[in-house]
Design a protein around this nucleic acid. Structure first.
Lengths: 128, 128
DNA sequence: TAAAAATACTCCATAGGTATTTTAT
DNA sequence: ATAAAATACCTATGGAGTATTTTTA
């Protein structure tokens, strides 16, 4: 169960066709068809019936629709968090201290359980 | 943000080392190290500090730990559902009907909005 | 004819393996 | 010497593209 497969599935749910799903995801129609075909093969059952050249949602597909959307929502939330964590460094502060022992006790690096290993030096960098 | 990256991250969280995470996921240690390195590169910040040859969780990694676990739990739930949907066909029932029109009105195939297209025939297969 | 889906290729990035190196205990 | 992590090199596969075919309205 790949992530791209979930995104593809959700896009087809949302748009109702492989062609529209392709536009939504910014890829080509064959990419959607193949990903869907491989997913159905792995799952062991059909997610859409091909009727009159169109995709028609099966009952089994409907049964997992909510959970798929749930997962994608959670993933987007995680992405939002990591984006903030990466560009969200409030600024890099630089400290000066007369004695090495001072910086050791005052500076907290972005690590855990390793205070005793902090390297000695009169200058340190702290991240907020 | 690949799925395998989330699984790798969770495994390191759980075991505390890349080697143990590798055993947990049934892959080799280099596989874990590389996946982690690529994830950190994409995210733009470090998830673990390499201190004395060991991985030590950063604050940023702690900040996403719960959400990562959430997503994996949701995925496992989805997998459980699809497993049941695939092997969970209660049995294949076979019906016989004197007149074709009878099976048309009584049998519901695993498709939607296509009753008018159901093929005629005195025998049909229904999935529960 | 137009539109949707499927198929047949080709290409590249990811994920995996084995072997080896580096570093710290 | 051991153990953890990183690195180098190789292979397989998933996902993407373009081009084409099939089918139906």
């Amino acid at each position: 169960m790949r992530l791209r497969e979930l995104e593809t599935l959700a896009a087809i749910f949302e748009t109702g066709s492989a062609s529209e799903a392709a536009r939504l995801l910014g890829v080509t129609q064959p990419a959607i068809s193949r990903t869907l075909a491989r997913l159905e093969e792995k799952l062991g059952f059909e997610l859409f019936n091909r009727v009159n050249g169109r995709l028609v949602t099966t009952r089994r597909a409907e049964a997992i629709r909510a959970e798929v959307q749930n997962l994608l929502d959670g993933l987007h939330n995680l992405t939002r968090i990591t984006d903030q964590l990466s560009k969200g460094r409030v600024g890099e502060l630089r400290f000066g201290c007369a004695r090495p022992s001072c910086s050791n006790s005052l500076l907290q690096e972005d690590r855990r359980c390793s205070n005793s290993q902090a390297r000695h030096g009169s200058t340190g960098q702290g991240r907020s």
